[in-house]
């Protein structure tokens, strides 16, 4: 039980994907303009990352290891995740229009997001069990969601702040992201995984 708690805390706070590993910066900067879209994106990422972690674990254990093709991990995972996300998008479109309205537009965006691929690859490196890797994927997505929503809140305030002309727009956004990363560094002593 402690092991699972450690994995979760480590993935959410200590080894935060965006601020410590610097994965998934593109959606982090791209979709954080408004809190509303950030929340939609967060749920989509949670969904996809957990799924991707499970699928990649299955592929690794039942296809790559028996065939001794571990060196093809990256390309296999890209293939599997992309196909899976497309498939899930279709199923959601058919079965739940409400969920599709909420997640639909974000799903293709994160098909082969580097954070999603990162979860799949790191899971394999860390030799997790099936449940641990699913939890790790979910935790990583939770960390991503936390940071994305916090950052979108900051950016909404920034829009109204008197920013010096030279720093308007992207520069102040990047500086803010850097400061957040510094703040998250404070968690680094919390867990060792």
């Amino acid at each position: 039980m402690t092991e699972f708690a450690l994995i979760l805390v480590s993935a959410v706070l200590v080894n935060n994907y965006v601020l410590s590993k610097f994965l998934g910066i593109c959606p982090f900067l791209g979709v954080s303009g408004k809190t509303e879209t950030a929340i939609g994106m967060s749920f989509a990422v949670m969904f996809v990352m957990t799924l991707a972690a499970c699928a990649s674990w299955l592929v690794q254990q039942f296809v790559l290891v028996p065939l001794h093709l571990e060196y093809l991990q990256t390309i296999f995972f890209i293939l599997i995740i992309a196909a899976l996300v497309q498939f899930v998008e279709m199923v959601i479109h058919k079965s739940s229009p409400v969920l599709y309205q909420g997640l639909g537009i974000y799903l293709p965006l994160i098909t082969t997001n580097c954070a999603v691929l990162g979860v799949a690859l790191l899971n394999v490196q860390q030799d997790f069990s099936f449940f641990s890797s699913a939890l790790y994927g979910f935790g990583a997505a939770l960390g991503f969601a936390l940071v994305l929503v916090l950052f979108s809140g900051l950016r909404e305030r920034l829009a109204a702040a008197p920013v010096p002309a030279a720093f308007k727009g992207s520069p102040i956004t990047l500086i803010t992201a850097g400061m957040m990363s510094l703040a998250f560094l404070g968690f680094s002593g919390l867990v060792k995984v």
Binding site: L69, L72, F76, I80, A83
Partner: peptide, 11 residues
């Protein structure tokens, strides 16, 4: 073969 088969399956 493995990669091609997997891609075909997904397709």
């Amino acid at each position: 073969l493995a990669l091609g088969g997997m891609a075909l399956l997904a397709g």
